[in-house]
Design a protein around this nucleic acid. Structure first.
Lengths: 121, 121
DNA sequence: CTCAACTACTAAGCACGATAGTAGTCGATG
DNA sequence: CATCGACTACTATCGTGCTTAGTAGTTGAG
């Protein structure tokens, strides 16, 4: 499981929140940091994220335009599944995970789960 | 969310799997790496893990003896909850997470969940 | 006393993220 | 055509954290 650096995380957050692919210039305008990073800083980090497979890119004129390789929900769900998958005792981990949830969250989880096979009760 | 380095992960795995606190010497004998790390390497990493709060220690003679600060299941559940908590859309994330589960895993999850309040159906 | 086992302290190398400049290309505009 | 803004590929550097492990000193058993 890999951790994003600060700027990487900001860039991914911004890319996930955008409704279309973003060029480096557009990303630079969205990323709110003090001091503002150089154009080439943002460019390098986006290129790195592309190389690592988190962003995909296509041409927009002669600029690269980047969008996330997977949705944020997919990404986060995958992280969660990786944690659970590497756990020595998934049942105990799930029990603890569920035990951290509020009743509302539990209800939401319950509503999300497909009905068990073998129908009616 | 922090990532363990390789040796850190091995040490945590070993500490979690042990049924009692381990001294550096004992940990060195359990950690299977090629080439085997120096005693002081293991000692330093365990000290770092202690400083970071992942291991707690007590005296065993004049040696420090280390055990995990939380169970593995708690640790993993916390990681999962942190991922979910930082997610922009927890419901979508949960949906995707549940969607990755096999029917058996779903049954297990279902069995783990407390009954909804307002009983009988 | 000797020696094994421990500690605290220190130092160095490597990987990675962040940072950003340079040189060159390209396309629009005057 | 020249200029200039915008882009790219390439390169370099610094800080952080992990890994690595040696050194000097302490301690306790034999």
């Amino acid at each position: 499981m890999r951790r994003f650096g600060e700027l990487e995380q900001q860039i991914m957050d911004t890319a996930w929140a955008a409704d279309r692919p973003l060029t480096v210039r557009q990303m630079l305008q969205c990323v709110d940091r003090d001091p503002p990073p150089a154009y080439t800083t943002v460019m390098t980090v986006m290129d790195n994220l592309h190389r690592k497979g988190f962003l995909v890119r296509c041409r927009q004129g002669r600029a690269w335009s980047y969008r996330p390789a997977e949705s944020r929900a997919d990404h986060d769900a995958r992280l969660m599944a990786e944690v659970l998958g590497s756990s020595a005792d998934p049942a105990a981990t799930l029990l603890r995970f569920v035990g951290r949830m509020s009743p509302e969250e539990l209800n939401r989880l319950r509503a999300l789960m497909p009905e068990p096979p073998g129908g009616g009760r």
